[in-house]
Design a protein around this nucleic acid. Structure first.
Lengths: 246, 246
DNA sequence: CGACACTTTGAAGACGATCAACGCCGGTGG
DNA sequence: CCACCGGCGTTGATCGTCTTCAAAGTGTCG
């Protein structure tokens, strides 16, 4: 029970709840361990729960008719799996969710969320902010996809990864397989592999799973060339700040 | 004033408001005519208002460093311009909004929206549903972009256009220029032009601005080939239903 | 050591972008 | 009335990039 209340306390989504609201939430939620490879839900399953990742990583993906997996997101601690399914008219999941590694999740019945949304002013606001952020990211990513080269996209992603996970820019290891990352970036594994090679000339060194940023200024120029959203993309902002510092 | 209350009455976003809420909304909003080509806001402007299209069409776009316009959306009556900016931490618009044709808009101060969101249970719910839908569409589009050919994307778009605007599938005219549509679909005008040619063999006939669907079954097969989200994409659903009817 | 998953590399091919030329149309001005 | 122009769309040729297919390399774990 302490791990659960700890989770509820630290999750931004549930910050600012009153004491009795918090108690109610504890009563109506549960923690779930989910070992590597198991599905949380599959495409077509009924939408019954709202999930928040507390530990580990969850892959959200679809499967094309020919069996190819298309990853739409990789979620880590603090991310919600299906905030977009709380207010939808649909009754079934339209994607698959699977634990990439051993994961721990907070599970709340969707029905309960829906019924109590209006009581919990703060939570509704948080949810809306969450949806807004996701929409924003999706739009930026769509624009990236159509205006940047695969190599630029990879560079941008590595930067974001470093920020989001709080890794050391001097050197860190990729948190999951290259196959998974390539799928997430909607490029082929081969293209991803070649992109990493190209990046060596642009200030990013990748050897095996080890990444290190060697020339932030150069990388910044490379990534933001032809890009209209430097101010909006967190990775670009980061690069600019670094570059300004010298 | 009657045109405004009419707008407020018919907009799904504001349906279900109590009478006094409605009065309050009328007092705090205004209608704005916006003639073809004028900007509603530009990238970098302060976010002051929330806009809903009542008549006409509005283009949302960015400009790349080299001056190329990238259209992120084309909005018509009933669509909100910037629902995603109500809950954001940002204070400035990150895109441009311009009237494609003479348009009429409902304008509400963002501040007022924010302050009254919690009072208007229904409206918050509508806004969330709106954001959810947009996110959903964005995800589908991203997946389309990476799994379908330009020709398939165009076919899918024409179908959606026909549904959204309530056009006659037997024959209708494109509501805006091919240049604009190509920009919206993130493909080059030349590619769009060639795609239309290819579609003749797939059951869609386009001559000048005139579009007619000649073989829905064939088109359905063509569009949905390799696609994992037939159940989720309204255009695909439409095609399947038509095809099933014979 | 061998099996297997994951990754790299090479070569070929497909697709869309780009560049350039032209046709079409409506508007403007002589 | 005609000549000119600019915006828009089509068509052709070429080029670059990403995908695809195939093969070989690397690492891990039994």
């Amino acid at each position: 029970m302490t791990i659960k209340s700890e989770a509820l306390r630290t999750l931004p989504l549930f910050s600012g709840l009153k004491k009795d609201e918090n108690t109610l939430l504890i009563e109506n939620s549960r923690m779930q361990n989910c070992e590597r490879g198991t599905f949380l839900f599959m495409h077509g399953d009924m939408i019954t729960n709202f999930y928040v990742v507390c530990r580990g990583t969850v892959q959200i993906f679809r499967e094309t008719p020919d069996g190819h997996e298309v990853t739409s997101d990789l979620l880590i601690a603090g991310d919600s799996l299906n905030a977009d399914e709380i207010m939808t008219k649909q009754t079934t999941h339209n994607k698959n969710a699977r634990a990439v590694d051993d994961a721990v999740l907070l599970v709340i019945p969707v029905k309960w969320m829906q019924e109590n949304l209006s009581n919990f002013d703060h939570m509704a606001a948080h949810l809306m902010a969450n949806l807004t952020d996701r929409l924003h990211s999706a739009q930026i990513e769509a624009e990236h996809q159509s205006t940047m080269s695969a190599t630029q996209i990879v560079a941008c992603y590595l930067q974001r990864l470093c920020m989001l996970y709080g890794f050391d820019p001097e050197g860190f290891d990729l948190p999951y397989s290259k196959t998974l990352i390539a799928s997430r970036l909607r490029i082929e594994l081969e293209t991803f592999s070649r992109a990493l090679k190209n990046l060596r000339g642009e200030g990013i060194d990748v050897d095996g799973v080890h990444v290190s940023f060697t020339d932030t200024k150069k990388t910044g120029q490379f990534v933001c060339d032809q890009c209209s959203l430097c101010e909006d993309c967190p990775a670009h902002l980061f690069l600019h700040k670094k570059a300004a510092q010298g």
